[in-house]
Amino acid sequence: MKQNKNLYNYIIGIADNSLILAQRLGELCGHGPTLETDIAGTNISLDLIGQARNYYQYAAKVQNEGKTEDDLAFLRLENQYRNVLLVEQPNEHFGYVMGRQYLFDVFHLMFLSEMLQSKDETLAAIAKKGIKEVSYHKRFSGDWIKRLGDGTEESNHNIQEAIDELWAYTDELFDQTEADKAMIAEGIGVDTSKLKEKYYEEVSILLKEATIEVPERKYFIKGGKKGVHSEHMGYILTEMQYMQRTYPNMEW
C-alpha cells in the first residue's frame, strides 16, 4: 500500500511538470513572433499534454480509487501539484519562453533517458516514446537560445535577463522527495542527483556558445516539488480548473 502511494506521488510529480509547462505554452498559441514559431510551440505543448495524459492515466490506475486522468489533472488543490517551480514561470517574453523550455528540456531528456531503465514497465514505455519528442524540444529550444544569445544586442540582453532569473529554479530539478527516494531505492525512479553535474555542464556549454553568461548563483529557489508554489500557480490553476470547478461532476 505504501509502495503504491509512493509510486502514485512519483508519477504525479513527473506528470505535473509536463502539464503545467504545456499549459504555459498553450497561453501563447496565436501570440508568438511568427506563425512558424506558433506552430512549433503548439507542437511542443501537444507532446507534453500527450505525455501528461499517459502519466495521469497510469497514476489513476495505481491509485485505484476510480479516478480519471481529468480528475487528477484538474481537481487537486494547489499544494497537491508537485511540479517544479521552473515550469510555472510566466511567459514574460520570448526569451523567458525559450529559456524556460531549454532549461527544462535538458533535464527532461536526461531524465527520460534514465527512466528507460526503470523496473516499472509502464514508465519505461512512456519514456521511450517521450525521448523522441523531447529530443526535438531540446534541439528547438537550444537553437533558439543560440539565436537569441548571439543575435542582436537587444536579444542578448533579453535572453540573459531570462536565464539569470530562471537559473534560480534549476536546482530544484534535482531535489528528491520522499516518494522519489523510495522509488529510486526500488529501481523504479531516476536518481536525479547523478544527473546534476552533467546537466550544468551541458547547459553551460550551450550558453557559452550563445555568448550568454552562465549565472553564478549559490542560493536557489525551490518549493514546487513539496507543493509550495510561486504566486503564479494559483492563477494557472484558476484558469485550468475553471470549468471543472464551476460545473462540478459533468462530462465534456
Binding site: T34, E36, I39, F140, D143
Partner: peptide, 20 residues
C-alpha cells in the same frame, strides 16, 4: 513554402508545418 532565418530553422519549421 515558409519563412525562416536560416536553413536549420527552415528544416525545423518545415517539420512542424508540413509533417504534423
Amino acid at each position: 513554402s515558409l519563412h525562416a532565418a536560416d536553413a536549420d530553422m527552415a528544416l525545423e519549421n518545415a517539420r512542424d508545418v508540413y509533417t504534423r
